[in-house]
Amino acid sequence: MPADPTPDGTTVLGASDVSRALTRIAHEIVERAKGADDVVLLGIPTRGVTLAHRLAERLAGIEPAFDPAASTGELDVTMYRDDLRRQPTRAVGVTRLPQAGIEGRTVVLVDDVLYSGRTIRAALDALGDLGRPRAVRLACLVDRGHRELPIRPDFVGKNLPTSTSERVRVLLSEVDGVEDAVVISGREHGEGGAR
């Protein structure tokens, strides 16, 4: 469901900030992997999939031999979540792996906001059923803190210290039909915050 096109809250990243963050993350991925030959980007629905495709295009700009279509997919983690009993019923999504698979490759999980770490734990469990990557990395546009599990991103667009009462919304033009932005709502007295 598209986000409210006029969200309440404070915009902490605009479209140009999001673009710069993704370009920086792409360069960091290439540097850490010493190229992009064996890199696979798996987006976590919904916005992680869009971000993975954007990162893939940037990787191709850095490493011309990198094929975005053959190295990008999506990973549905619904059935691996540990909160299924407490959450409303969710529709199971689709997992799409690149044709070459993930075996022996460097998989970069891509998500919009990292919060408790539980979604990423579910993603790691899902990956274990799909193959054995050489390495797994995590890229997120926003890290808002408040981890409940020992999970840390390898590539971060923006660290946003937040309170638990605040909410971070990532808006992407392809998904939400509005200009890219990261918006924090629920801030008290104008102080920092996120999702």
Rank of each mutant, 00 (worst) to 15 (best):
R132D: 14
E174Y: 10
I151K: 04
L13D: 01
R47G: 15
T11V: 15
T164H: 07
D176H: 01
D4R: 04
L51V: 06
P161V: 07
L51T: 04
V113W: 09
A139T: 10
L160T: 05
L127H: 10
R134T: 04
T10P: 05
R90P: 06
R24L: 14
A91L: 13
E179H: 09
R167W: 09
I102D: 01
V136C: 05
H27F: 11
G192S: 10
S116C: 06
V168E: 04
A126L: 01
L138K: 05
S173Q: 14
A15Q: 14
V18S: 07
V92A: 11
F66P: 00
R85M: 07
L75F: 06
R132N: 03
L51I: 10
A91D: 12
R195E: 10
M1H: 14
R24G: 03
H53Y: 12
R152E: 15
G9A: 00
L171H: 14
L109C: 00
G48T: 08
P153H: 06
P2S: 13
V175P: 01
T89S: 11
G157A: 07
L13S: 03
R147L: 15
H146L: 13
R54G: 09
I29Q: 04
I184R: 12
T95C: 10
A69N: 10
T106E: 14
E28A: 15
A26E: 00
R137M: 12
V12L: 06
D154L: 13
G145K: 00
M1E: 07
L171Q: 09
R147T: 03
A33P: 03
R47N: 11
Q87G: 07
V113L: 05
A122T: 04
L141G: 02
H146I: 10
A91W: 06
P133V: 00
A139K: 04
P68Y: 12
G177M: 08
S165T: 11
L97E: 01
G93S: 00
S16K: 11
A126Q: 12
D176S: 03
F66D: 01
E148T: 06
G101V: 02
L75V: 08
E57S: 13
L160D: 00
E191P: 07
G190A: 07
R54A: 07
P68L: 01
P5M: 09
V142S: 01
L124D: 11
T164Q: 08
G117P: 04
R147N: 10
P5R: 04
L149Q: 02
P150I: 11
L172I: 08
T119S: 14
H189N: 13
S173F: 10
T10R: 14
D154C: 10
D37M: 01
E191Y: 11
E63C: 12
Y80F: 15
V40T: 11
R187N: 13
S16L: 12
V12G: 08
T162Y: 08
R90I: 09
G9T: 04
G177C: 10
L160F: 01
